[in-house]
Lab assay of single mutants.
Amino acid sequence: GHYRIRINGREFEIRGISEEEIRHLEEALRNGADEKILKEIVDRLRG
């Protein structure tokens, strides 16, 4: 998958993330885990 997200007015492209991972992120966001989720995304993109 290849997705664009906007955070604090800046747009980011996220590549190589699966539909299942996105559902997991959405679930966590609904549970209020904003900073933790951003850290997970950044860590994943770093490799």
Score class of each variant (00 low, 15 high):
Gly16Cys: 09
Ile17Trp: 04
Arg30Ile: 09
Ile41Tyr: 07
Arg30Cys: 08
Lys39Arg: 14
Ile5Asp: 01
Ile17Lys: 02
Ile22His: 03
Ala28Gln: 10
Ser18Ala: 06
Glu21Gly: 12
Ile5Lys: 00
Gly9Gln: 02
Ala28Asp: 02
Asn31His: 09
His24Ala: 09
Leu29Arg: 03
Glu19Gly: 09
Glu35Ala: 12
Arg44Pro: 02
Phe12Cys: 10
Glu11Pro: 01
Leu25Thr: 01
Arg44His: 07
Glu40Gln: 12
Ile37Cys: 06
Ala33Cys: 09
Glu35Gly: 07
Glu26Gln: 06
Glu11Ser: 04
Arg23Trp: 08
Ile41Ser: 02
Asp43Thr: 06
Gly32Asp: 05
Arg15Asp: 05
Glu26Asn: 06
Arg6Glu: 11
Leu38Asp: 01
Glu11Ala: 02
Glu40His: 08
Asp34Met: 12
Gly1Gln: 05
Ser18Phe: 02
Glu35Arg: 04
Asn8Pro: 00
Glu35Phe: 10
Ile41Thr: 04
Ile17Asn: 02
Arg44Tyr: 10
Leu25Val: 07
Glu35Cys: 13
Glu19Ile: 13
Ile5Gly: 02
Ile17Asp: 02
Arg4Phe: 11
Val42Trp: 11
His24Arg: 11
Ile41Glu: 02
Ile37Gln: 11
Ile5Leu: 02
Gly47Arg: 10
Ser18Gln: 04
Glu21Pro: 00
Gly32Glu: 04
Ile5Tyr: 01
Glu21Trp: 07
Leu25Gly: 00
Tyr3Gln: 12
Arg23Asp: 05
Leu38Phe: 08
Arg4Met: 10
Gly47Leu: 13
Arg6Gly: 02
Leu25Glu: 00
Glu27Phe: 04
Lys39Phe: 15
Arg23Asn: 09
Arg30Ser: 11
Tyr3Ile: 15
Phe12Ile: 14
Leu38Ile: 11
Tyr3Arg: 11
Gly32Cys: 08
Arg30Trp: 05
Glu26Tyr: 05
Ile37His: 08
Asp34Leu: 14
Asn31Trp: 06
His24Ile: 13
Arg6Asp: 04
Asp43Ile: 08
Leu29Phe: 07
Leu25Tyr: 03
Ile41Pro: 00
Asn8Lys: 02
Glu35Thr: 09
Asp43Val: 06
Arg23Gly: 10
Asn31Pro: 03
Glu20Val: 09
Ile41His: 03
Ile41Asn: 01
His2Ser: 15
Lys39Trp: 15
Ile22Arg: 04
Leu25Ser: 00
Arg44Met: 09
Glu40Cys: 06
Asp43His: 10
Gly1Ile: 06
Tyr3Glu: 11
Asn31Leu: 09
Ile7Tyr: 02
Ser18Ile: 02
Leu45Arg: 03
Arg10Gln: 15
Gly9Leu: 01
Gly32Asn: 09
Leu29Thr: 03
Glu27Asn: 09
Glu27Tyr: 05
Arg4Asn: 05
Glu40Tyr: 04
Gly32Tyr: 07
Arg46Ala: 12
Arg4Trp: 05
Arg6Thr: 15
Asp34His: 14
Phe12Leu: 04
Val42Pro: 01
Glu27Ala: 11
Lys39His: 13
Leu38Thr: 02
Tyr3Ser: 09
Arg15Pro: 10
Ile17Pro: 02
Gly16Arg: 02
Arg44Cys: 08
Arg6Met: 15
Glu40Trp: 13
Arg46Met: 15
Glu27Met: 09
Val42Leu: 10
Ile37Pro: 01
Arg46Thr: 15
Asn8Ile: 01
Arg44Val: 07
Ile37Arg: 08
Glu11Trp: 15
Tyr3Asn: 10
His2Asp: 15
Ile41Lys: 02
Gly1Phe: 06
Glu19Cys: 08
Glu40Arg: 06
Arg15Trp: 14
Arg23Pro: 02
Tyr3Phe: 15
Ile14Thr: 01
Glu26Met: 08
Glu26Trp: 05
Gly1Met: 04
Glu20Pro: 06
Arg15Asn: 09
Ala33Ile: 13
Gly1Arg: 05
Leu45Ile: 13
His2Met: 04
Arg30Leu: 10
Leu29Lys: 03
Ile37Phe: 10
Ile41Trp: 15
Leu38Gly: 01
Glu35His: 12
Ile7Val: 05
Gly9Arg: 01
Leu29Asp: 01
Ile41Arg: 02
Glu21Ile: 05
Arg15Ser: 10
Asp34Ser: 14
Arg10Ser: 11
Ile14His: 00
Phe12Asn: 00
Ile5Asn: 01
Lys36Cys: 09
Glu20Met: 08
Ile7Lys: 00
Leu29Pro: 00
Glu27Gly: 06
Glu27Lys: 07
Gly16Pro: 03
Glu19Ser: 10
His24Gly: 10
Gly9Asp: 06
Lys39Asn: 11
Ile7Cys: 04
Tyr3Asp: 09
Leu45Ser: 05
His2Tyr: 13
Gly9Tyr: 01
Glu21Asn: 07
Glu26Ser: 05
Ile14Ala: 01
Asn8Asp: 06
Ile17Leu: 08
Glu21Ala: 09
Gly1Cys: 12
Arg30Asp: 07
Arg23Lys: 14
Glu40Ser: 11
Glu26Gly: 03
Glu20Gln: 13
Glu26Ile: 07
Lys39Asp: 05
His24Lys: 11
Ser18Glu: 03
Arg4Ile: 15
Lys39Thr: 13
Asn31Gly: 10
Phe12Tyr: 15
